[in-house]
């Protein structure tokens, strides 16, 4: 049985439908990340699971129990907010033990549970401080600690790293991954940062305009996207898209070169899109030349920006450091090429 299941879940604010029929099952112990651009409904969906937003239609089950209409406190979930949402007038220990206090847990037992959570998060020295005297990273740990002490069935994270600086974000991301391994808990994590999604998730749910575009393991979404949106959203720098036409049942022509693709179905007539990731412009296949207009040097690797047939293209270059104006030979590797139809769906 799934730990969490959403069936035909919709949400409308006034006349605007922001969640449009979401079906999803999450297994016990799974780490699932909701990603998508701003306004795609990922935070709304998380808040619906938490019970902070009502569900217009459909059902939500947690551990087999229908919680669609249940109050947040009856859902056995804990949530970590982007803003930390700590209680400023309480100490760290009081913040972490507040839920237990409301449950009527005796003070000594409460202190023991809070101390145990603080030990896991290495925030024991902070227990008697108020949130105002903590750094952003420490506050986020306390917010996570508050969730841990409750031993919830599902942990929800709503963009928890967005308020942290870049270095702390990487560090806290690793700690969340370690925490998940240590607790083995079911976690749902919302982010717009696809690096966070790729590094943390067992499965990624890509959302757009209130619909699920694709669900899968991070590498599956990266290697085998279902549509143009997912192909463009997952991966950084993003995938190159070149407008092409079919020149045969399994052939396309791009920049004067013909590529023969291993497809199970013949290509339709009309406009198509060829997708090639910046790091896949090498190997065997027809060659084209990219004149570097801008070069981003990252040390180990470089990204050269230029145009092929008037379309902007980014190419990853390893082995040497290209200069602006340099003609860089690229390979249109058919084994790496993805083709999308006029409707944006992948042709396989």
């Amino acid at each position: 049985m799934s730990e969490l299941s959403l069936t035909g879940v919709t949400k409308a604010f006034g006349g605007v439908q922001v969640i449009q029929g979401v079906d999803l099952s999450i297994e016990k112990g799974e780490f699932v990340v909701f990603v998508g651009p701003s306004g795609c409904g990922k935070s709304t969906l998380l808040r619906m699971i938490a019970g902070l937003e009502t569900t217009s239609s459909g059902t939500i089950h947690i551990a087999g129990e229908d919680v669609t209409k249940a109050e947040p406190y009856d859902r056995h979930i804990a949530m970590v907010f982007q803003s930390y949402a700590l209680y400023p007038h309480m100490t760290v220990a009081e913040n972490m033990g507040f839920a237990l206090r409301l449950q009527g847990v005796a003070a000594p037992e409460r202190r023991a549970l809070v101390t145990e959570a603080a030990r896991i998060l290495q925030i024991e020295p902070l227990l008697d401080r108020k949130p105002a005297h903590l750094s952003g990273g420490q506050r986020q740990r306390v917010a996570i600690g508050r969730a841990i002490t409750r031993h919830p069935k599902v942990f929800l994270f709503d963009e928890p790293l967005s308020n942290l600086d870049a270095e702390l974000r990487v560090q806290t991301r690793l700690e969340i991954a370690r925490l998940h391994q240590a607790l083995g808990a079911t976690m749902i994590y919302v982010t717009h940062d696809q690096t966070e999604a790729m590094t943390l998730a067992h499965r990624i749910v890509v959302l757009r305009a209130g619909r699920i575009e694709q669900v899968g393991r991070p590498t599956d979404l990266y290697d085998d996207p279902d549509n143009l949106f997912v192909a463009g959203f997952i991966g950084s720098p993003k995938m190159n898209f070149l407008p092409v036409q079919a020149s045969g049942p399994r052939e396309i022509t791009v920049a004067g070169q013909t590529l023969t693709l291993a497809l199970s179905v013949p290509l339709p007539t009309g406009p198509l899109t060829l997708g090639l990731r910046p790091e896949h412009l090498s190997g065997e296949g027809p060659q084209v030349t990219l004149v570097a207009e801008v070069v981003e040097q990252l040390g180990q690797t470089s990204y050269a920006h230029g145009k092929i047939d008037g379309t902007p293209v980014i190419a990853e270059v390893r082995g040497h450091r290209p200069q602006v104006g340099e003609a860089i030979p690229l390979t249109l590797n058919p084994s790496r090429a993805l083709v999308f139809g006029a409707d944006g769906q992948r042709l396989r």
Partner: peptide, 15 residues
Amino acid sequence: VPQDMIEAARLDGAR
């Protein structure tokens, strides 16, 4: 009063 704080308290079990 931050809405997030109220929501966090509701999730913590506050009536």
